[in-house]
Design a protein around this nucleic acid. Structure first.
Lengths: 238, 238
DNA sequence: CGTAAATTTGAATGGATTCAAACGTGGTGG
DNA sequence: CCACCACGTTTGAATCCATTCAAATTTACG
């Protein structure tokens, strides 16, 4: 029997409840025995960030890493010409700030795209647990590999091919985050910054997709429905 | 007192000698006590690959990871349209195939760019050592982070901006690998595949760089000298 | 309801791709 | 040893795609 998330339950809000948390099974401490888990619960903070708020900043000395429980986070790097490039988009159960575990400063600026709920895990927690629990090390490595995979995707899927292909691939990626219906939290500017294209081009492509029926806007909810097959064909022409 | 590398010494060739190896200090087993190190030396194989040979292939079940001791390796991913994109360039002391440590198949195809010497580290070695040596876990995590950093560089430096900017940044990156004089092992086609531009554009930009004196070819050796300041200015216009 | 911000659309420009051909170079076999 | 072929590089010209700048329109929000 699966437990529903109770983390958003009023009684538990603003407190980490990793035992009952819905994403526990795909989260860092998944394999820890419950009693060890209890010892660290008190210092794991459940935080909420409003849209566009900064979670941490590139170059800062990091004292914590973060697990995303709801919403989307963008990892941004500033370019020499003043613009900025979105290096990665993090969604449910992704980890931000892993680099602090090896003593590095934050490598990006992390910004909430929409309203974001995250678990803030202080670095000392990790440092205390790692020596005792090899399975936590494994779990950390798996997260690192996921970071690499996501970075590779940013290059191969989001930064290769025509603007249309890139946008289609991004939409498909987002559609797996939420379901078919994505509350288009990403503005055109952010889409451009992810895909390495201009804001105007992103807008034009989206308009064209609506015309072709690849994307359908629903006026009531701020939602878009995706035509997955059509998008798939656009994403990988052959 | 620093030891010179004796790994290329005839007496040691074709055998791993991680105790005396020149890159030992920046290599996976740097922090292991020498006696533990001895136990695994026999199974770490010192290999040489000719240019353009495949070290491993995307999707294969991996039984080993690799440390690069000489030369350059490209990690390639095939695209839907038959072309291929170079995701990363690995050089001295970089690690390829880390993903096998968490039980994953190889995520890219690894191909030797020039003549490459690598240490082949069988997976069981890692699996045996990790539980006993937490410092090895730390070392592995540091490698993973390096992979992430390199992947981010591929995106931000090599896949952003005009063709000229990208080529300049690639040359600067290569110049840190060898010294100022890079034996231009990368063909124009590979340059294009790294930078996400066409072979012809890569060629045109290089020709233009020679005209402007940013790159000077030395006929005798197959070497190019770089004008680092000029390249730096081209790489980051502002 | 009015202002600021984001999106959309247009027209001109520019940069990169594509297709094609010429050039150089290294290797192989006659 | 030279001729010849294969392959990578270079260069040209036409085309196409995306950017840029500008203006119009919509949306968000106090």
């Amino acid at each position: 029997m699966k437990r529903k998330t109770v983390c958003t339950d009023p009684g538990w809000s603003r407190r980490a409840d990793c035992v009952h948390c819905a994403i526990r099974s795909c989260v860092l401490f998944a394999d820890l025995p419950p009693d060890d888990l209890d010892n660290v619960l008190s210092v794991i903070e459940d935080q909420t960030y409003p849209p566009n708020s900064v979670i941490y900043r590139e170059g800062e000395k990091g004292h914590a890493l973060f697990t995303i429980r709801h919403g989307m986070v963008k990892l941004v790097r500033d370019l020499s010409d003043g613009k900025q490039r979105i290096v990665r988009l993090l969604k449910l159960a992704d980890v931000a700030g892993l680099e602090v575990v090896i003593g590095s400063n934050y490598k990006h600026t992390a910004i909430a795209v929409d309203e974001v709920e995250i678990c803030r895990i202080p670095l000392p927690v990790i440092e205390r647990l790692v020596p005792k629990h090899p399975e936590l090390s494994r779990e950390l490595m798996a997260r690192w590999q996921r970071n690499v995979d996501d970075a590779d995707r940013a290059l191969v899927d989001f930064s290769t091919g025509t603007a249309e292909e890139r946008v289609a691939r991004l939409l498909l990626y987002l559609s797996t985050a939420d379901n078919i219906c994505i509350c288009s939290s990403l503005g055109r500017q952010d889409m451009g910054a992810v895909l390495g294209i201009s804001t105007e081009t992103a807008s034009r492509v989206m308009a064209e997709f609506k015309r072709r029926g690849a994307v359908r806007e629903v006026a009531s909810e701020r939602c878009c429905h995706f035509n997955l097959e059509l998008l798939g064909r656009i994403a990988n022409p052959d």
